[in-house]
Nucleic acid binder design. Sequence first.
DNA 1: CTGCGTGCAAAGTATTTGCAAACCG
DNA 2: CGGTTTGCAAATACTTTGCACGCAG
Lengths: 139, 139
Amino acid sequence: MRQPLEVIRNAGLKLTPRRREIALLFAETLKPLSPLEVQELLRKRFGRCGLPGVYRNLEALAECGLLLRLAGFGRERKYMFCPGQEKHHHHHIICVSCGKVGHVEGCLYHEGMMLGGYRVLSHIVQFEGLCENCLPKKP
Amino acid sequence: MRQPLEVIRNAGLKLTPRRREIALLFAETLKPLSPLEVQELLRKRFGRCGLPGVYRNLEALAECGLLLRLAGFGRERKYMFCPGQEKHHHHHIICVSCGKVGHVEGCLYHEGMMLGGYRVLSHIVQFEGLCENCLPKKP
DNA sequence: CTGCGTGCAAAGTATTTGCAAACCG
DNA sequence: CGGTTTGCAAATACTTTGCACGCAG
């Protein structure tokens, strides 16, 4: 797994305390977090922290590939840590019970293929399910 | 293809002018529309029309299966007409050039299957591409 | 030093709610 | 007639911007 702080440096971003805290928070948590949740967690751990800064950092970290923007229908933005290799195409599955994010390998869709008369340029694939730990609880 | 107005009646919703206009607008347009776009189109065609009513109707029509909420990353909500059978599992592909929505049959994922150690409960799959008409323009 | 990064306050956008009047069935 | 549905105004939720100060490189 790539080292979060290295990724930030390689992207030409400064490694400020705020940035470092956010990156490590996601690396430890491994769950989808909204900007507001990130702010609350940072406040508990490190004192004050402005929401605009959180938004800017989440975008910056998503831009450099460390975080992933989550697809969804609502107006709520969510990000999560993506520990995979940059060039490795894969998708994610989120546990509806505990929020843990898993990786799904072997995607069957790829750029350029034809589907229903269209040439595919990009796709969103995202799963919800139950992880190994939560399965026994909800059989 | 199901008759939009029938679907509304069967869902126990009243068939008001506003509702009828929205349903027919989507049935004719066959493109993803945001609440604001819907309001503007209705205003042009039928005079005034309140945004809250549009929001409520879009949700109601999505609830009864006539419209589909579009997945995405932004904060902008989009809906589109879904002329398929209710029980027929399929996904959609949106032309990035003209916005036309096509159907993709034969999804390879289904409820209950195991993926990466998770039991799948639901999934979002959505494509962007170029439709037959727009393909020649962008070779 | 220099310019990116930060917090704060304030501005934007998108969506939702309360309510009285209008309307379908 | 009675419960939905509607438009309007206002409230809410979420996100972005402007700006002066602070800190990494």
